[in-house]
């Protein structure tokens, strides 16, 4: 009997080692090497467009108590992002060589945005929305990197994240990626117009709209069947609206229709069809989208109106 138990223990230990090794292997942070990058001449204007649609400044610009006074070119970080897993402190991504990303290679940058892996080979937390950025075109990433390099270096390292166990273990993010990080660069839909495809790319890639406009499961993964159907804000304080036709249709009760034109106009000046001005985090998004070209805003609108209608979670009952 004892012999049998001993053998079982050996087998269990062996299985555990194999399991751990397997986990270690499948959660290895993925990397893009510089040899994988063909020659490229950066287009700074396109880099700036990517910067704006990507909303980089919204999180990475050093915060100010008056959001209108934030200098969107100084990417010193420091903003606190509250979440069910703890508080993330947005890092410095200014070109400062010591505290920012001044020493990063282009491949380091592409790896961070496509794979969610840091130059040191650690998993980045998905509060950085690489689940969307992974769909960006290589040239757009390289233009964006070149643009960020033109911005002023800002000194100062941001404090460490304040996360609860076990969410503070970066290795576990490898498991998160296995579960929720799917798909590579954006694939065009040839049956749709170039405008629609441009919109789909901007919304799902750099724009990362679904990161806030979708409900998440207990592991912080987007619930795919309810993508774009709204949900609680990450800090739990408010509610992000459902932007599928199922959600927007809701407005028709008040005789308000979100046409393509209305959506594009909202992204330009923040005034919704009810004559109301955007509030909360969307004000920051409008700062980004108002800097885009009218053609890009129209493309986003052309795509949004074609989202499949989906019911999301129910907002908390009115008090």
């Amino acid at each position: 009997m004892r012999k049998w138990l001993g053998r079982l223990a050996v087998i269990a230990a062996g299985a555990a080692i194999v399991g751990l090794a397997g986990f270690w292997f499948v959660t290895l942070p993925a990397v893009v090497t510089s040899s994988a990058l063909p020659p490229h001449t950066p287009n700074l204007a396109n880099g700036q467009t990517m910067f704006n649609i990507g909303g980089c400044a919204s999180c990475h610009a050093a915060p100010n108590s008056d959001p209108d006074k934030v200098d969107r070119t100084r990417l010193g970080g420091g903003l606190a992002l509250r979440s069910p897993f703890g508080i993330f402190y947005v890092p410095n991504i200014s070109p400062d060589p010591k505290d920012g990303i001044g020493k990063w290679s282009e491949a380091n940058f592409v790896t961070a945005l496509w794979k969610g892996t840091s130059p040191r080979g650690n998993h980045l937390f998905p509060a950085f929305p690489y689940g969307s950025y992974q769909h960006m075109e290589l040239d757009d990433l390289r233009d964006l990197f070149a643009y960020i390099k033109t911005l002023p270096p800002v000194e100062g390292r941001v404090r460490r994240h304040d996360l609860s166990f076990p969410f503070n273990l970066r290795r576990l993010v490898g498991g998160w990626k296995l579960l929720f990080l799917h798909g590579g660069p954006f694939a065009e839909n040839p049956s749709k117009s170039p405008q629609w495809n441009r919109g789909a790319y901007l919304v799902n890639g750099p724009g990362h709209c679904a990161e806030c406009h979708s409900p998440r499961n207990v592991l912080g993964g987007i619930i795919e069947s309810e993508r774009f159907a709204g949900g609680p804000t990450p800090d739990g304080e408010g509610w992000v609206p459902n932007i599928t036709p199922a959600g927007l249709q809701h407005w028709s009760k008040e005789d308000i229709a979100w046409s393509e034109k209305e959506i594009a106009s909202f992204l330009e000046d923040g005034i919704n069809p009810a004559g109301d001005f955007a509030g909360g985090a969307m004000v920051e998004v409008i700062r980004n989208t108002s800097s885009l070209s009218a053609a890009d805003r129209a493309a986003i609108a052309a795509y949004i109106v074609t989202l499949p209608p989906r019911q999301g979670p129910k907002p908390p009952p009115k008090k």
């Binding site: 408010g238 509030g279 969307m282 907002p315 908390p316 009115k318």
Partner: peptide, 12 residues
């Protein structure tokens, strides 16, 4: 916009 951003929370 400035005031909504700072002082209003969307509930639905």
């Amino acid at each position: 916009g400035g005031c909504h951003e700072k002082y209003r929370v969307k509930k639905s």
